[in-house]
Computed example of a mutant assay.
Amino acid sequence: MTGFATLNGENGVFNWTWDLRSVNAKGLDIRQRVPDWIEGLEAAVRVELNKVLSRGSVSLALKIQKKEEQGALALNRTQLSNVLQALHEAETVAAEQGVNLAASRSVDILNVRGVLETASDGGDQKALLAVLLKQLPVLLNRFQEMRQTEGKALHTVLSEQLTQVETLTADATVVAERRQVETAQKLHTNLKRVMENADGVDSERVAQELAIIAVKADVTEELDRLRAHIEAARDFLKKGSPVGRKLDFLMQEFNREANTLCSKAQLIDLTRIGLDLKSVIDQMREQIQNVE
C-alpha cells in the first residue's frame, strides 16, 4: 500500500530529517539510506519496519547534519594508522603493476572519515542513536495513519466493485436460465430433424452426444463459484489482518470463472456480461495491489 511520512528532529549537536515512503509490491522490499557511522542504526530500523509492514516496496531515508563544531579537534591515531597502512599497501600494489600514484596530501588523509573528530564524537553517536530510535515509532505511527486513511478509501472502492460483480453475476444467471430453455428447445428440434432424415442412426447415441453438448454449455457451476468468491472476498475485507495476497489469489479465481463463462456463452447477452465481469475484475486486481 502506498504511504508517506516525514519527521524532523534535533538535539544539541545534530539535526535530522526522516523520510519514509512505500509503493505497491507483491512482497516486502525494504531499502534504507541511513548514516553508516551510527553503529546499530540500520539493523534496529529494519527490525521496527518488519514489525509493522508485511507488503510493499518501502524506502526509508535519514539525513543528518551536524551543527557548528563543538569542542577541539582530536586526532584518532588508530584510524590514522589504518588509513596510512591501507595507503602504503595501495602504493606497493600499484608499483608492482608499474603504476605511479600521485603523492598523497596531508589534507586528503585528514579528510578521511574518523581521522579527525571532536572530543565528544563517541558520546554524541551513542546519544544520537538513542534519540533516533526513540523518535522512530512516531514516524511509523504517522506512516500507518496515512496508510489507514488510504485503506478506508480503498475498502469503499473494492466493496463497490464487488457489488458490480454480484450484479453482473445475477444478470448472467437470468440470461443463462433463459438460454437453457432455448437450448433445450433447439436440441429437441435438432434431434427430431436428425432422426427424421437419417436411416439406421442410433437414437440413444445421438441423445448422448447432445447431452454432452448441453453439459459443456452449462454455466451453472461457474456462476455458483463466482457467488462463493464474492462472499469470500467480502469476508477478507472485513478482517483487520493483512489479506492482500489472499485477495490477489482470489482475483485469479474470479478471472478464471469469467473466462470460462465467456467461452461457454454461445449467446451475445451472456458474452457481454462475461466481458463486463472481466473488466471489473481487472480493475479490482489493480486496486488489490495496494492492499497489504
Rank of each mutant, 00 (worst) to 15 (best):
V58W: 02
T2Y: 09
N100M: 08
L101D: 09
S203A: 15
I109N: 05
E292N: 12
G240L: 04
V194R: 11
N8I: 03
A258S: 14
V47T: 13
D218H: 00
V181P: 01
N255S: 12
A5L: 05
A44W: 03
G71V: 03
E160T: 14
Q65K: 13
V165A: 11
V13P: 02
M146N: 09
A233E: 08
T220C: 03
L250G: 04
V112A: 03
S203K: 15
E177W: 00
F143Y: 14
Q79K: 15
L223F: 09
N50R: 14
E89N: 12
D248R: 06
A153S: 14
R285E: 05
A86C: 07
E91Q: 15
I288E: 05
Q180M: 07
K239N: 10
L84E: 10
Q65L: 09
L237M: 15
E286D: 13
G3D: 07
Q97D: 03
G71P: 09
Q144A: 12
Q135S: 15
E292D: 12
M195Y: 01
H188W: 01
T173F: 04
A184P: 00
E117V: 00
R179S: 00
A176V: 04
I281M: 11
E145D: 14
N76L: 06
A233P: 10
V83A: 14
D19M: 07
N76G: 07
K186H: 09
R227D: 11
R142M: 09
S241H: 11
E89R: 13
Q185I: 07
R234D: 07
V165Q: 10
L75T: 09
K67R: 15
L210E: 07
N255D: 06
R147W: 10
Q97G: 05
Q65F: 07
A207M: 11
Q135I: 08
V215H: 06
V280Q: 08
E39W: 04
S57C: 03
G200Q: 06
Q283W: 03
Q266M: 10
S104N: 08
R225W: 08
V47F: 05
L168W: 04
R105G: 11
R245D: 03
Q252R: 06
K67N: 11
L49D: 01
Q289R: 15
